[in-house]
């Protein structure tokens, strides 16, 4: 008798979950399986031929993949920490403010709302070699670089854009910081702990789970970095988009090329669905590593919950 309601609950759950199960099969399981299949073919949507491991072998010869990997690594090593550290800093500042918190919080958050394309286009303009930012820099005697046109400055410029729009992370940290019990700081202050010690021994341990979560998601998003880099390359290179021109992502000098862009180019611009599938799987494998880390975080969190 006792087993029946439970089994029924399982059936009911199945019914309720059915849209998602359908979605999962159609838009994840099946496509993933066929991506594996396509990776062994030469397919341009007109003709399909089985080529075995050719695409995979080409992966090893394709220097753009290494360029993309290097760029992504840069993003993970510099952009992600910059974003996270900055967000914590701003959030921390907000907790210390006595007046105007609401005003500042809203103001700091606003850039996050600027649509990615709009923000990127705006930054490319602001940071153009004769643009407003370099003009302002010249007032203090600094000759600004050609931000988005110089391969050694293009990624830092995008980092500036990322930091500018860090509102979401900031809000998350703000909530976490406000969760730290006030009396702990007071006790620490009485013990004579300075601001840095307080941060290290009280704040950091309390927000550690949130920090970890933010870092991992930020890394996963860095692996997917597409829109901002694509738009920045497009607009900064002055690719006219006029008929007869073709645009290869990565300007300047491949410094903004990332794997998702290279995949997009290979599969949908270069009509090479087979090789594109190889790149897609590479992308899948790398992001899966971090997703697994994330899943472990979740499982830990779930165990605490139940």
């Amino acid at each position: 008798m006792r087993a029946r309601p439970k089994r029924r609950e399982g059936l009911r759950a199945l019914l309720w979950l059915s849209p998602w199960i359908a979605g999962f099969s159609i838009f994840f399981a099946y496509p993933l399986a066929s991506t594996v299949y396509f990776s062994f073919t030469n397919y341009n949507m007109f003709t399909l031929e089985f080529v075995g491991l050719d695409n995979w072998r080409y992966l090893l010869q394709d220097d753009r993949v290494w360029v993309s990997a290097k760029n992504t690594l840069w993003l993970v090593v510099f952009m992600v920490p910059a974003q996270v550290v900055f967000s914590i800093g701003v959030a921390q500042l907000l907790t210390k403010l006595k007046t105007g918190v609401g005003f500042f919080r809203t103001l700091f958050y606003l850039p996050t709302l600027v649509p990615m394309v709009a923000g990127t286009v705006a930054f490319v303009f602001l940071l153009n070699p004769v643009g407003p930012v370099n003009q302002i820099l010249s007032w203090v005697g600094i000759a600004g670089p050609d931000w988005f046109g110089d391969p050694s400055w293009s990624k830092p410029s995008l980092t500036a854009l990322a930091v500018w729009g860090c509102g979401n992370t900031m809000v998350i940290f703000l909530a976490a910081l406000l969760d730290v019990p006030k009396h702990m700081y007071e006790a620490a202050a009485i013990d004579g702990a300075g601001a840095w010690r307080q941060f290290r021994s009280i704040t950091l341990p309390t927000i550690a789970p949130v920090l970890m979560f933010s870092l991992v998601t930020a890394v996963i998003y860095a692996l997917q970095y597409f829109t901002q880099a694509m738009i920045a390359s497009r607009v900064a290179s002055g690719a006219t988009d006029s008929a007869g021109s073709s645009f290869t992502p990565g300007y300047p000098e491949g410094s903004l090329l990332t794997l998702p862009q290279w995949f997009f180019h290979a599969a949908f611009r270069d009509s090479n669905m087979g090789y594109g599938s190889v790149l897609a799987l590479l992308l899948f494998a790398t992001s899966m590593i971090f997703t697994l880390i994330l899943l472990r975080q979740f499982r830990k969190a779930e165990e605490v919950h139940s």
Partner: peptide, 18 residues
């Protein structure tokens, strides 16, 4: 668990791919 799915996927694929 993916194996049956993958097999099913490949069969469908044979029908749609070309």
């Amino acid at each position: 668990r993916f194996v049956p799915l993958a097999v099913a996927g490949l069969t469908v694929l044979a029908l749609t791919a070309c």
